[in-house]
Write a protein that binds this DNA or RNA. Structure first.
Lengths: 215, 215
DNA sequence: GCGCACTGAGTGAGGATTCACTCATTGCTC
DNA sequence: GAGCAATGAGTGAATCCTCACTCAGTGCGC
């Protein structure tokens, strides 16, 4: 079932990417969806509102997305892919585990800085659909945790990081810290630069937390 | 408006606490609600399902709660009050900021250990209603953050903790770490004792992270 | 009998999805 | 290049289903 919901994401016989009229409607719908979802939440958002915000008819949404659920998942997929792709290419180039951690933290916060609506969708809205959360998002989160945990384990092996903390636990803690900071930032005033400034301090906090004991 | 929703929580002319028949129905409904909300999420839960799980009629729920929203808020209120009350009485008795932090961490994880459904409600379900989140839960979270931040600021003033990190930022990071750990625990296997074991390591992590620089 | 907790079938509103229709565009034919 | 037919993206009103909530009743406890 989770399988079906995953494969279903890929919309069926959609119009070709270069549509004759209107241009990239799919992109416009996604843009509108981030904005509307962020303002009203998933369940309180009417599909017709997204359509209106995107400047298309209600039915058009169903030409590009299977359902309202599919719209949310596609949104997440579409935007978050950047982060994962970037990590996959960048991390291997960094030798030190501490610098890798620093990069991860800066990336996660940096991606959402300047994209408040996206931040809110990722930290709050995505979790509003239990079905999506359990079937789709949870495994994605796990995969991300694993990436972080692997970096920590490397650092422990090399002696760069303290070895008396479970890498998976630490990974979840780091993710949670970043997530909570992003959430309060998005739900609150969201001052520009707020996340970037935070990232420096969090790097500090995490790296000292994971530093080997002073002899 | 947030005011009205808050005051509205108090149910109107409910049956007296000592009902003649059936005993404390209100409690039974709350118990059922935790279980059903945890399994299906707020929006996918039908009020009739909660009624069925509680062994009462649909209408009975409305004798004790104003609405489905009210049911969720009452649930949170009812259960989480323990944590806050306990903190308010216990924290002042502890002198050292580091021990206070330790207490907070152990309490937050300890409260939910053994109450998996409640853990899921607090970490996941509560956030499903954007309205509740923004009107009701966000201020509660903020108050909790403030408590933690105050402890950190105290520790900084006394030199127990490093002073180059914003107390509010650190508070959110700590909360987020605990929250993410609880969430993955609740959504995953939720092994007994898992949270307690985690709490020791998190205390370690946080306290070293906040420790003053080694000279 | 009276009052009150309780019941649960019924109601109405709301909203996701559908689908019969429109018409700009394309490309075929002469 | 004009006329014409075919195409299929786009539309949005209508459909139809799903619940949250209501309220006319039921029967228990006194």
């Amino acid at each position: 079932m989770s399988e079906s919901s995953l494969s279903a994401r890929r919309s069926r016989g959609r119009p070709s990417a270069r549509t004759v009229r209107g241009g990239d409607k799919r992109e416009r719908i996604l843009d509108a969806a981030v904005r509307v979802f962020a303002r009203k939440g998933f369940y309180l958002t009417r599909v017709s509102e997204v359509a209106k915000a995107a400047g298309v008819a209600d039915g058009t949404i169903y030409l590009y997305f299977k359902s309202k659920d599919d719209l949310l998942v596609s949104l997440f997929e579409n935007r978050i892919q950047r982060l994962l792709t970037y990590l996959d290419t960048e991390l291997p180039r960094i030798a030190s585990a501490t610098y890798k951690l620093q990069k991860i933290i800066e990336l996660q916060l940096g991606l959402l800085e300047g994209e408040r609506d996206l931040a809110e969708v990722v930290t709050v809205i995505l979790r509003q659909s239990t079905k999506l959360m359990k079937e789709y998002a949870a495994p994605r989160f796990t995969a991300y945790f694993d990436t972080i945990a692997k970096v920590i384990a490397e650092g422990q092996a090399s002696g760069e990081l303290r070895a008396d903390i479970s890498p998976h636990l630490a990974a979840r803690a780091i993710f949670g810290a970043l997530d909570a900071i992003t959430m309060t930032w998005a739900l609150g005033k969201a001052e520009p630069g707020g996340l970037l400034r935070a990232s420096g301090q969090i790097v500090e906090l995490v790296l000292r937390g994971l530093s080997p004991a002073a002899p």
